[in-house]
Design a protein around this nucleic acid. Structure first.
Lengths: 332, 332
DNA sequence: AGATGCAATCGTAACGTTACGATTATAAAT
DNA sequence: ATTTATAATCGTAACGTTACGATTGCATCT
């Protein structure tokens, strides 16, 4: 296979000059640069990744640690555009992207540690942060460039990309108000989760602006199945003053809501208005009229790589944090 | 960071001996091996990927070339378990997996070529083979270990993993017959596609066994949207002797069929029986009674890696080809 | 003429690893 | 006591690259 040595021999140059010529070194004569580049192209030279990595310490590889969702495959819908966004952005920046899938019984800290020590990556993308995530501290300590998808409750600054849950919930609530709803149900996932807290805050803000008092019974937590979701919405619709606007937490929540409505013969878009999150695909195929507020996951992937890249280039630079806004899908 | 040199210095041994001890070389005294391993563990030694790759020529990296589906995001459902299967199997075998996403305007041959020449991977997984796929020839010529997901019409032998479309269509047809259907509609994607040809063959076989003549009007091609799919099924249902069994090509096809049925007030499972492919998720959430015949994509991913691995270990060994069967999802 | 500066190129060493032949020490055989 | 075999360890080179100081040639200035 072609390498610098061969090109050097062929042109009676030193390896050094060839190396420099290929990166347009200012010390090399323009005519020599041209000759070298021509020869490199002719013999199909591509730099050897490992020789370079060994010498420079840069691997031109990024690694994304992604948890496998064996339990809830619906949320996977979001993961694929994320992967696509990351891989393409990485490629554009000259990196290749390695995917490290973790199973539920993998120790997340250990999986990060292994990546660190094998020196096989220039930067890490971590996802699914937990409260006080130990990986953040570990990576900061070791000075391994990284970026997190999501925030957690740490007082140290670290680079992350996250979805602006507050804005999303605010806009969803406002949209339901625009449809005339005043009693609006908000479905959340885990109350202790940072994202859910932000969503609640956005909801509260919209309600306060409209001068509508908060009814705690319209705020629900912890529905992870369609069944439990349906049961909750069913209970709400059964009460004396039922909600006329529903903000679903995700796709499962939407299906639960539809189920509950169907049971009572209520029609979405007429009797009740629904806004849901990140369910473009499903909502698109359902006959019901549903508004979808979603985040461009491919953009999240791109941003993750961009932040990580700038982190690698300048590890001591300002800590970038990015919040991505959601948008309503255009109506049909 | 810990390396062989440091361990050697600490134990007053040569780098060679340490290197050998860590791989249980028979030339090293057992007591020395123990000492070395203890020291390695203590200082947190992990072999440097690039030093090793440079010396041995093996990178311990596999690369999967995956096309991005900007057009039809539904089929993506199948890709995520595929990725998960591949990454986990790769990890188990001591490899890391790199994802190379290609956009529709990437030249597939060039993308493979780049991987080849950068010497940055031990093996390639290629997908979406086209008729007479030039990549197969290229990779065989260059002796780069690879495995394909899917078959194509080449007379040269090459390793692949594929889905047994013939068996799947056969079983789907049989299942509909078991429900009492005799007029069975078969929806296919692209007629010139190898997979569709095999499906047709499986359908024909089942029909022949049951002594039912083939009605060409019940075999449909090339529906890539829900709308066109709905239109086709609608036309079928409108005719004088409509089908009572529908075999849908994929999720879009299923949605089209349901749409057509709903329009005429027909109920799946009562008036018409439906079998569809790889739509577990969607079918699970729809109220309609639908049978789903699906292939375990995580298993496909695992098999791809396993075949590729054995290819790397023994490039001149027998060419493995694997056909994976589909299965009906268990009823509720 | 000799010194000075600059442009262009070269040579050596190093990154961390492994392959392989050389070397030493120890025990067994003559 | 000398040879021979064996076990254990060492030293050197190499994989392909890049960093850096050294070297060469040539024009310019005093």
């Amino acid at each position: 296979m072609a390498n610098l040595k061969q090109i050097a021999a062929e042109l009676s140059l030193s390896v050094t000059t060839v190396s420099r010529a290929l990166k347009d070194g200012p010390e090399v004569q323009p005519s020599t640069i041209a000759r070298v580049k021509e020869a490199a192209k002719r013999v199909g030279y591509l730099p050897n990744h490992h020789g370079r990595a060994l010498k420079t310490g840069r691997t031109l590889t990024l690694t994304a640690v992604l948890p496998m969702e064996t339990r809830d495959h619906l949320s996977d819908l979001l993961k694929l555009p994320l992967i696509e966004g990351m891989t393409l952005a990485a490629r554009k920046a000259g990196y290749s992207l390695s995917i490290y899938s973790t199973t539920p019984d993998d120790d997340p800290v250990e999986s990060v540690q292994r990546q660190l020590q094998a020196h096989s990556t220039d930067g890490l993308i971590i996802t699914r942060l937990v409260s006080g995530d130990p990986r953040v501290k570990l990576l900061l300590d070791q000075r391994m460039p990284f970026v997190a998808f999501g925030r957690t409750d740490l007082d140290t600054a670290y680079p992350y990309v996250d979805v602006d849950n507050e804005q999303i919930a605010y806009e969803a609530t406002r949209r339901l108000m625009d449809k005339g709803c005043r009693r609006i149900a908000l479905q959340l996932l885990v109350p202790e989760d940072q994202g859910s807290a932000m969503r609640l805050s956005g909801y509260r803000k919209a309600m306060a602006e409209a001068g509508i008092p908060i009814d705690q019974s319209l705020i629900g937590h912890g529905m992870f199945t369609m069944e439990s979701s349906a049961a909750w919405f069913d209970r709400l619709l059964a009460c004396s003053d039922p909600p006329t606007g529903l903000a679903c937490a995700n796709e499962l929540g939407l299906l639960g809501a539809l189920h509950a409505l169907g049971k009572r013969g209520l029609v979405p878009g007429r009797d009740v208005h629904i806004v849901t999150r990140d369910s473009t695909r499903l909502a698109h195929f359902l006959p019901a009229k549903i508004e979808v507020h979603s985040v461009d996951m491919a953009a999240v992937g791109r941003k993750l790589v961009e932040v990580l890249e700038s982190r690698i280039i300048d590890p001591l630079g300002p800590v970038e944090t990015i919040l991505l806004k959601g948008e309503f899908d255009p109506g049909e």
